[in-house]
Simulated assay, not measured.
Amino acid sequence: MTAPMDAPESSQHADPEAAARGSGAANRSLGQIAWQRFRRDRIGMAGGVVVLLLILVALLAPLLASWFGSPPNQFHQDLIEPLTGGVLRDPDDPAEGIDPWGGISTEHLLGLEPVNGRDLFSRIVYGARTSLLVATVATLVCVVIGTVLGIVAGYFGGWVDVAISRAMDIFLAFPLLLFAIALVGVVPDGAFGLTGNGLRIGVLVFIIGFFNWPYIGRIVRGQTLTLKEREFVEAAHSLGAGSAHIVFREILPNLLTPILVYSTLLIPTNILFEAALSFLGVGINPPMATWGGMLDNALRFYTTSPHFVIIPGLAIFVTVLAFNLFGDGLRDAFDPRSSD
């Protein structure tokens, strides 16, 4: 009878550290658990680092352009061969011919554009500012509209749910690209107190945000339908809480994770949409730097100046890939079915 009594006693001496570890894990918040999972995801972390660097580049674009290049709209005609528009290998000796690397040097880190000789590095960093501005603001508009209407549809149900759901179906069936081309193409020079590219950016934000909200609206509606049947919502009902309290204090905090994750996946889609419109010539007007506009100009010189096509194309590719990897990492980190 002594052996069975000794085993629990020894386990009692051996278990406090395990119990402390278990209690520490149990006391961690969802954010702490998600952060630990995300740190172990090297691909997601790499995407997050690139996203952070892109944001810093966009914010510090004027400073970076002054340090490592020249103003984005400054022409360097003395470095351009007048007949072909290519960048000279040696401006002091035009007989040296065209530089296949586009004039990459310590003064121009990514070379120069053909014909006009604008600094590619400066236009890339300013293009990052344009793309991230349009995509981020449009995503914010999309998230606000989709979250509000999704919660209203999922929580109240009935004819409200039917009306909002049918509106979602209509917006999802709308030919957004054709509408954007038609609308941006007829935008006047000034309206609503805005002029020029300021007005065009506002129109792009409106089109992308207003017509893309059903995607996140459907996700929020589905999550709300599930959450409103949970025990904590029923407990709030039994305590006499009103609809506003339940929506803002009980349901909305539990929706922040899917909203955050979907937002990071929506931003690259909006970047591609803005680049597509600029590529088609109905987005941001020149001379304002945009990656899509740079690609549009580069198509005429892809045989003689391939760097002019590759550099803005890589900028779009790296940005979209980084946001997608970052969003996938966040989704896995906040997934309750993931192992700790």
Rank of each mutant, 00 (worst) to 15 (best):
Y215T: 09
C142S: 12
V50L: 12
L79S: 01
D335L: 11
L256D: 05
A58N: 09
L330Q: 07
V160T: 13
G240S: 14
V50R: 11
I259M: 05
I246S: 09
F68K: 03
L295S: 04
E229K: 11
I145P: 00
S243N: 13
D90C: 06
L325Y: 08
D340H: 10
D99Q: 06
E234H: 15
S305L: 06
D169W: 02
F323D: 05
P4I: 14
L183G: 02
R21K: 13
E96I: 07
L194Q: 03
L265D: 13
W67P: 05
I201E: 01
L321Q: 10
D90H: 07
R39V: 00
K228R: 15
D335E: 12
D93W: 10
A7P: 10
I55V: 15
P62M: 12
L295I: 09
M288T: 09
I271T: 08
E234G: 03
P286E: 11
R118V: 10
R118H: 12
A180R: 02
P175F: 08
E96M: 13
G22R: 13
P114N: 05
G97S: 03
N270R: 10
R89L: 15
V187M: 13
R221Q: 12
G327D: 04
S105G: 11
R39Q: 06
V261K: 04
V247F: 00
G222M: 11
E274N: 04
H245V: 12
D119K: 11
A182T: 02
N116T: 12
E274H: 03
G31D: 13
G85P: 03
I164Q: 06
A46P: 09
W291F: 15
Y126A: 03
M5L: 14
L260R: 10
M294Q: 07
L199R: 09
G102K: 01
L199S: 13
I246Y: 07
P91T: 05
I151Q: 04
G69S: 14
T130D: 06
A182L: 15
A19C: 11
E231K: 09
F301Y: 15
Q77D: 11
G281N: 07
L56A: 15
A65K: 01
D41C: 07
A7I: 15
A26G: 10
V57C: 06
D93N: 14
A3Q: 10
T303M: 05
L63M: 15
L194V: 01
I207F: 04
L149V: 02
D328V: 12
G102C: 10
V233N: 06
I55Y: 01
S339E: 14
F171I: 14
L295Y: 01
L132Q: 01
I216N: 00
G327T: 07
V318G: 07
I124G: 00
I208K: 01
A182Q: 08
A3P: 08
P16K: 02
L260N: 08
Y262W: 07
Y215K: 12
Q223P: 01
E113I: 00
Y302H: 12
L277V: 10
N297L: 15
W101P: 00
N212V: 02
L265G: 15
L59S: 04
E113S: 06
D119L: 09
M1I: 03
F279T: 02
M294Y: 01
F121W: 05
H245E: 09
V203M: 12
A135T: 04
L266A: 14
S238Q: 13
L194S: 06
P286W: 08
V51M: 09
R42V: 14
F273D: 01
D99R: 00
Y126C: 00
E229Y: 05
S243L: 07
F75D: 11
S70N: 06
